[in-house]
Design a protein around this nucleic acid. Sequence first.
DNA 1: CAATCTTTTGAGAGTTACTGTCATTTGACT
DNA 2: AGTCAAATGACAGTAACTCTCAAAAGATTG
Lengths: 207, 207
Amino acid sequence: MASAETPSAAQAGPRLGLRERKKIQTRQAIRRAAYRLFEQQGYDATPVDRIAEAADVSPSTVFRYFPTKEDIVLTDEYDPVLEAAIRARPAAETPVEAIRQGVLASMQRILDHDVTELRQRTRLMREVPALRARAAEGMTESARMLCTVLAERTGRPADDIELRIVVSAVFAAMNEALMCWVEQGQTGDLIALIGRTLDVLARGLTL
Amino acid sequence: MASAETPSAAQAGPRLGLRERKKIQTRQAIRRAAYRLFEQQGYDATPVDRIAEAADVSPSTVFRYFPTKEDIVLTDEYDPVLEAAIRARPAAETPVEAIRQGVLASMQRILDHDVTELRQRTRLMREVPALRARAAEGMTESARMLCTVLAERTGRPADDIELRIVVSAVFAAMNEALMCWVEQGQTGDLIALIGRTLDVLARGLTL
DNA sequence: CAATCTTTTGAGAGTTACTGTCATTTGACT
DNA sequence: AGTCAAATGACAGTAACTCTCAAAAGATTG
């Protein structure tokens, strides 16, 4: 979603055909309606049919835009951001440091771009088990991406065991940090928190 | 499941009433039928109704024993094993070392106890997205348990951020190692693999 | 051992998240 | 204006649950 759905993006593309613009609108309408209803009555208590109704589309259309109800909340474009950020790091940097800088940079970008959405998303992720589970599943996909990027950097194969372990540990820790942030009311300095998180990993999990 | 469902456990409890014994049998029958059908036709292609049929119980009964279809595969008793193993470690040991020894010891116990089941479970966990997601969700519960135990050890609060990060990183890494093991045909030395995994963590994720 | 009490079970109806199909609508392009 | 392709909506169907209630079966007590 992100850039494609932001209000600012509406005027950003006068070269998009009417069809494309309508698709973006529909997608946005569905997500907006969904977030509003989830806020009001909770995720589980809101059937997709009602979201469709509120967004003024048919239930079929909702499922055409979002394969599952969870996707309405969880679809994001963070992976490309992270990938770009890490690729931007100098090749001489160690993997851990490249991850650190890449992660911090992309988190900053996401924060600058749409904190509100990040807030809603993470709050729901914490409160709704189905979303938590699905988000974890999404992390394994992101992890595969990061593995590929780091494989290029280090010359290791992309399915290298140690590489996969590093990457999955990083994602899990970041996710946990995010959950902590939510529990503390999403008020603290998220960048600093993630920095500390990566510190813990880099120092070998010593307490 | 584990101990309660093993054949050997059947004669282990002559002090259990007929009712209890029947419950154990039913539970076992459902899981056996399910595993068999999953093997034959795959997880998604096997409706709960057919599992019920194969286990000779009503669909209602299946849901009474296992709240969700996923639970048929994922329900286990590993947490208490791990908890006991870690509590058994001397208080002087560092947290990381206690985790290492506890994890290795309990994994050894599980391997000794029922490799077959671990094999089936992990294979399904790798192949079925729904199970992968649900398993991840289960890990966060295990993580909360480990946090509590380590909190006692270290004198930190159970919701200490660094503690939570350490624990979630460990679980994620172990899970990834397990997945690697499955991909390699579940043939390698799992204990050694987990040992190496914890090494990577302890050395600060350096490659 | 019979009567009662409690737990377990099965049957059936209802909800919801999907999936697939098909006719209709609606931009796009000539 | 007319044709073509894509998007939509209506509808039927499946499967995972959830709830309720009455029947069956083990436990308990006199």
